[in-house]
Amino acid sequence: MTAATLGRRSPPPSWLLGLAGLAGLVGIVELAPRAGLVDERYLPPFSAMAAALAEQAATAEFWRSLLETLRGWATGLAIAMVAGVALGLVIGGVPPLRAALNSTIEFLRPIPSVALIPLAVLLFGTDMRSTLLLVVYASFWQVLVQVLYGVRDVDPVARETARSYRFRPFTQVRTVIWPTALPYVMTGFRLGAAVALILEITGELIIGSPGLGRQIAVAQTSGAVAAMYALVIVVGLIGVTVNVAARATERRALRWHPSIRRDLAG
């Protein structure tokens, strides 16, 4: 400890380094077009993007689109979470059912959600429900598969303890299976949240359901390149915020878990 502090200065905190990296990216995006390294028509300098973002933020259209995107994303994710967790607990808790459905799940899961776009359009047109279908389909599998792993992870000794104290099936689910599966549910939530955002934007871009994705497409076709980038940045920020929030929730809910706790007894 003392040797280290004397020998060399302690490295700067990781958040500072992360910020420096981000500043570097902004610097490059600002300087490269100005120096003529890239065509300004396709990559305007960062300051132009920021200006376009400020301009966007002054319009009601932008805020309405942002709200549409967030609503579609949250609704889809919520449906996927509820369905994934409920079905995961049931399928995972009944071994014959699990064995019967295993191959079906393995077949349906890898189907890329975007492959369902034609079907979604046939069913719902350019309505927000089309995009919702994609979002739910994509994030549902992420959640379901994680919950299935989680249910399988229940310690046999914990299970026998619960049985020997004659816990009712519901109590076993609530006090043993659910807490064991919770870390997996959290992972499923984080993965599902990321995938849901991707599909929400994809749906809006391609199907044209209302939201930021459609605004990006509109900006692109009308040649508002800086505005297009500004919207892309906003979408990126949503992604970062969601991930940070999910991790914070995870840390709070899983204080007891070996990956987060600090054992006093070695």
Binding site: D155, V157, A158, E160, S164, Y165, T175, P179, L182, W256
Partner: peptide, 15 residues
């Protein structure tokens, strides 16, 4: 009531 050998796994860490 049963006391198992594997106390670390028989007690619930989330409680």
């Amino acid at each position: 009531a049963v006391v198992f050998q594997e106390y670390g796994r028989s007690l619930f860490p989330w409680m």
